[in-house]
Nucleic acid binder design. Structure first.
Lengths: 154, 154
DNA sequence: GTATGTGCAAATCATTTGCATTCTC
DNA sequence: GAGAATGCAAATGATTTGCACATAC
């Protein structure tokens, strides 16, 4: 919608195309459709949700293709997997990434989302104010390890 | 092994029994076996791993029972789900819980584990020293939300 | 034209469920 | 003895794969 948004999508698209070219893969119809749908998605989504959405909209892609392209996008660094202990895989764009956090209830599995701050202690009062009883936490960084960076250097 | 360890296991067992009693559930053979195996497990494990282990050791439990008891233990707060974006469910004890962190490679999905510090910035140099290129992070708190606390109060 | 991408149907794999049987309280 | 727990086999649901056909380069 906004100029920034459009620009970011273009950058992501360029990143994807660059990746495909470099990897000797093709710019196919399926890849375009799925890329598009991913960019339209808000927040995090599961592979199934995206696939279902495509099918419901009668887009010309099959479920397996959605899954396949999702892994392309992962490889390309356009999306990333989020760290939820759920049965399904969750993804989200890389492009709207700001450090963002979640508190999950071990009973109902619902998430409370909260804004970024500098130090982890800062979050406790915030969550407690919402009545969330904290049992522990885990910081989850994602990135590329040395070995994989070396491999990519090839 | 150590005295502390044994004591903690006893405490966890007591917690589990208390939960079962309170919930009007029974102290069955299956629950004892699975509790035992969980306490022997190191770090995090998947339901499948635990089930397979039980079957390989010819323990008197079936796969569905392992799964069922695992959810009892979750309910009882003896184990918790960890926040990994994997197809399987990961669990770990609550009892050896210290704030601990993981950095995961988006390529090979391997984890780098690292010790707890006070502020999240502190981790960056640590990971970078290991050649891990950080793309982002996510703080994951687990606990019980207000609604579920209220429900438990019943 | 050739190698890659795709859909379809079928295979997998972890997890869950129905139900008859066995056990705990 | 009644209500729970369990095993078994079968169901489920997400994800993946084999393969013949279609398409991008």
């Amino acid at each position: 919608m906004s100029k920034v948004n459009t620009q970011m999508i273009d950058e992501e698209r360029a990143k994807f195309l660059r990746y495909l070219t470099k990897a000797g893969r093709r710019v196919s119809h399926g890849r375009e459709i799925v890329f598009d749908q991913v960019m339209r998605a808000h927040g995090h989504f599961t592979a199934e949700e995206l696939a279902r959405g495509c099918l419901e909209k009668k887009l010309k892609v099959s479920r397996p293709t959605v899954y396949r392209v999702l892994y392309d996008l992962l490889e390309a660094g356009v999306i990333r997997e989020t760290a939820f202990g759920d049965k399904h895989r969750h993804f989200e764009h890389v492009y709207d990434e700001k450090p963002h956090h979640h508190a999950q209830c071990i009973r109902c599995h619902r998430f409370i989302e909260f804004p970024d701050r500098k130090e982890d202690e800062v979050y406790h009062p915030y969550l407690e104010k919402q009545g969330f009883k904290i049992l522990g936490h885990e910081m989850h960084f994602y990135g590329v390890c040395r070995k994989c960076q070396d491999k990519e250097g090839l």
